[in-house]
Design a protein around this nucleic acid. Structure first.
Length: 482
RNA sequence: GGCCCUAUCGUCUAAUGGUUAGGACGGAAGCUUCUCAAGCUUCAAAUCCGGGUUCGAUUCCCGGUAGGGCCA
């Protein structure tokens, strides 16, 4: 394969959603595999709907995922600018060329007229294409209408023929352009419409491979026809299957976050997102499921991309995320968790934090889970006295064991208050009270204020002697009141 | 409405013209000194339908059906 140049070309009319992120990923790993260049181009031709905040979100999201580009709006490159709104002179040049060569024409048909035609054609069961009314206006007619300030658009003269292309994922695809008709390419000389701007930019930016969503398949024949008219080379196309919502339709808000940054906020790790997205539509052909981005760069192949759409399944994402959390070093995980405690107003130190993280590491699926699952270390919550009683036990026994534990713990020196020294005590009490449940359960609930938690001694050590005794006393008081 | 794409457990997917149709997530059960989590073991769960081609089709072909996409 020669030089590979790819691009991700999002419109800043919305946040970076999972589909665009996944397309970016496939472009990125494909490009890296062939040591090519990856370009970010902002397609902001729709000025009304484009917003800088969306562009920022897109850039932030891609960077967070680690999908760095070699050329783009904020870093420049040989083919700058990389924002379509700044490239009007380029589009104007090619629009004029098509007009001069009689490959495009002014169309003065009104919106109402066009819609009426469409409706007619559809009701007759025909393809809703443009009639070609303005195709052969004379120079005089055009000049007259232009002078008369008539509203117009510029249409491309679609050659009536079949267009074939070889999709890297789907194989040979054939389209009859008779069924497409003369489509609009520009609102004005310098104001291009989607298909035209894409073709011009991909040529100007020397893109070689277009890897994009399946939703662009039917745009491809239009773009190829434009390439032919402009004497541009035909590029390699690869159309990725779509990411679907729970009901197999397009992803909507209730199927997941609107922005990739939302996943970051929810505590997903970028490496998990990458891994998950890669598996949505691609597989290595082996049972291996965990891939770093570097491994993907090596093992990725277009041949193994799926043809059918994939439903976005957050549980799978969570399980992959949990995997990466388990593999993470304590230091790194602590760094990621610390802000959640800080935000909640809990003061901690490195040592305590690491102990907590070590204990909870295998219990969280997302970083954000840490606060909910570990806040009891900082402040006990109120709980029902009844939950102190083990299901196979009763109030009297719970009270007796807690009192016993309290008495024995009190005798341990402050600086010896750790698992190692506490365990023998619990072993003796377990024997004395006929079963681990009789001792572990009430103590654990007393320390954690909840029915499910890590084991009691691990908690006690982190809490320290003073806090442990305090919580046991509270539990005893609670039991006495029922 | 036209055109295009797609079809394997609930989900993501593997496989091959001949397999007990494999794995993962999720689910169920069990084991692991109380609970949770993790880990391990086990179980349930799929080739859309109908025709061909073939000794044999989940796989190749055709037609349906369903879903999706684009055309505004």
């Amino acid at each position: 394969m020669g030089v590979v140049r790819t691009r991700i070309a999002p419109s800043p009319t919305g946040f970076l959603h999972i589909g665009t992120a996944r397309t970016a990923l496939f472009n990125y790993i494909f490009t890296k595999k062939y040591q090519g260049q990856f370009v970010l181009r902002i397609e902001d031709t729709d000025i009304e709907r484009s917003d800088e905040k969306f562009e920022m979100d897109i850039i932030e999201g891609l960077k967070w995922l680690g999908l760095n580009w070699d050329e783009g709006p904020e870093i420049g490159g040989d083919y700058a600018p990389y924002r379509q709104s700044e490239r009007n002179y380029t589009y104007a040049k090619y629009t004029q060329k098509l007009l001069d060569e009689n490959k495009a024409y002014y169309c003065f048909c009104s919106q109402e007229e066009l819609e009426a035609q469409r409706a007619d054609l559809i009701s007759e069961g025909l393809a809703p294409i443009y009639s070609g009314k303005c195709r052969n206006l004379s120079k005089e007619e055009i000049a007259e209408k232009l002078n008369g300030n008539n509203k117009y658009i510029i249409r491309f003269k679609m050659p009536g023929k079949k267009i074939f292309f070889d999709d890297m994922i789907r194989g040979n695809l054939e389209f009859d352009t008779e069924l497409v008709g003369d489509f609009a390419i520009a609102k004005n000389i310098g104001i291009p419409l989607y298909n035209f701007a894409v073709v011009v930019d991909d040529f100007e930016m020397k893109i070689t491979h277009i890897i994009r969503g399946e939703d662009h398949i039917s745009n491809t024949p239009k773009q190829i026809a434009l390439c032919e008219a402009l004497d541009f080379p035909i590029l390699q196309y690869a159309h990725l299957p779509l990411i679907l919502g729970h009901d197999r339709s397009k992803m909507s808000k209730r199927d997941g976050a609107t922005s990739i940054i939302e996943y970051k906020k929810q505590g997903f790790l970028p490496e998990a997102m990458i891994n998950f997205m890669a598996l949505l539509g691609w597989n290595p052909g082996t049972n291996k499921e965990i891939f770093s981005i570097k491994e993907l760069e090596k093992e990725f192949s277009m041949e193994r991309i799926q043809k059918s759409g994939a439903i976005f399944n957050i549980q799978k994402l969570e399980s992959i995320n949990a995997h990466y959390i388990k593999k993470m070093t304590l230091e790194k995980l602590a760094d990621l968790c610390a802000p959640y405690f800080k935000k909640a107003g809990y003061k901690t130190n490195d040592e305590k934090l690491k102990k907590i993280i070590k204990l909870e590491q295998e219990r969280i699926k997302k970083i954000s889970d840490i606060l909910e699952i570990a806040k009891f270390f900082f402040e006990p919550s109120d709980y029902l006295a009844e939950i102190l009683i083990w299901k196979k036990s009763n109030k009297e026994k719970a009270l007796a064991t807690l009192k016993d534990v309290l008495k024995n713990f009190e005798s341990v020196a402050d600086n010896n208050f750790n698992i190692q020294n506490l365990k023998p005590i619990l072993d003796i009490l377990t024997e004395k009270h006929n079963g681990a449940g009789e001792v572990f359960w009430p103590l654990r609930v007393a320390l954690s204020s909840q029915e499910s938690s890590p084991p009691p001694l691990e908690i006690a050590e982190i809490l320290d002697k003073k806090e442990t005794l305090k919580r046991i006393k509270i539990a005893i008081d609670k039991l006495m009141q029922i």
